[in-house]
């Protein structure tokens, strides 16, 4: 695809998209959103870049290979589980180092093992979707392609 409008629009949209995706991830615990939705938003952002500038450009923009991003994501999720196991003796239990329950109200910064887990989910979704999209885009057109009933 080679459209000036798409390219210009995409350039303007990328920061907005990313901001929305990360906000969705961050606010997911208390308001609609979360790792899956944020990840899908970011994946759509990658798809947009890919459509506007091509696979090579999108790969460069991602810096890391997409499957490595997914792998980091899964590692994050597992690490958050181990964090819970170390802190509470219970795999995947929540740990809130900066967040405390004071008289029934949670106060402080809502960052802890759960956010790490959700970020892992986010990264896996982004990585896998990008990886398959890129590979699909790069895959050759079979020579024998002919329409069949």
């Amino acid at each position: 695809m080679n459209s000036i409008i798409l390219r210009t629009g995409t350039r303007a949209l990328i920061p907005v998209f990313l901001f929305v995706a990360l906000m969705t991830l961050w606010r997911g615990h208390n308001d609609p959103g979360g790792g899956f939705i944020g990840g899908l938003l970011a994946a759509i952002c990658v798809a947009l870049i890919e459509k506007a500038f091509g696979v090579a450009q999108a790969r460069r923009w991602l810096i890391l290979p997409p499957m490595m991003i997914a792998g980091i994501g899964l590692s994050c999720a597992i690490l958050s589980g181990l964090w819970g196991a170390l802190a509470n003796g219970w795999f995947l239990s929540s740990v809130w180092p900066l967040y405390a329950n004071v008289d029934g109200k949670w106060e402080g910064l809502a960052a802890g093992s759960i956010l790490l887990f959700d970020s892992g989910v986010f990264l896996v979704v982004v990585g896998v979707v990008s990886a398959i999209l890129f590979a699909l885009e790069e895959a050759g057109v079979p020579e024998s392609r002919k329409d069949e009933p």
């Binding site: 997911g28 615990h29 208390n30 308001d31 609609p32 959103g33 979360g34 790792g35 899956f36 499957m67 997914a70 792998g71 994501g73 899964l74 999720a77 597992i78 589980g81 795999f91 995947l92 929540s94 809130w96 967040y99 329950n101 949670w106 809502a110 759960i114 887990f117 959700d118 892992g120 989910v121 896996v124 979704v125 990585g127 896998v128 990886a131 398959i132």
Partner: peptide, 30 residues
Amino acid sequence: AAGRNIVNVILVDFRALDTLGEVAVVLIAG
């Protein structure tokens, strides 16, 4: 679980092990 979005809390805290499995499946599918 310190979360107000109950669907998300179920996914990432109460049933986080299931979600971990699902994320792994997505990765394997990829």
